[in-house]
Amino acid sequence: MTNGSRQERARLVLMERLDDPGLGDDALMAAVAAGSRAAFARLFERHGSAAWRLAFRLAGDAGDAEDLVQEGFARLWAQAPRWQAGQAGVAAFLTRVVTNLAIDRSRRKRPQPMADLPDDPDPAPLADAVLAEADTARRIQLCVAALPERQRAAIVLTYWEGLTGPMAAETLSLSPKAFESLLIRARAALKGVMAAAGLSAADLPGDLA
């Protein structure tokens, strides 16, 4: 039996088992490496929501978050032939890719030059009005979005994604000590932004305050 026919038989077996809910991510990645789009769809069903949530929290915008998720899954697709079972899972891979993509995208953002501004006034309400009308959650998200990209990523990974210090440090390619220092700076900065925005624990709903 040649190598080609053996791989084809393995691919067929994987296709038959795709409906098995107990099929692991590594097996799905093997099927994706064989070109199975169904396996890739199964992976998206499992990890798409988490990736979207992380992307939205990091980017602060639905459009940017969608781009981040698309790019992250595209890299997962390209990584499938080189995927090694037993390594970090698909969730960790997507978390690292989406975080780094968000940081890179935030760094690439440049101030909009005056020549590119529209002539007509923006019909959207002013920022003060947005802040005044938005609920507390939105205001807090805006405060987080105002942080530098790495501090924002540290806050998001620690408080919203629930990663431990070493896991978040590995995601950001930092040492645990460096991440701890980064998180301390991020906390201090976020407190300052929130205080400047008039946020305090008194703004929380009754059951949370």
Partner: peptide
Amino acid sequence: LARLLGAASTTPPLPAGLCDRIM
């Protein structure tokens, strides 16, 4: 700070059709 961030952890739902667009 932890309580404030916990109150703001809500995110919009996953856009419909995103998987198809990615595929």
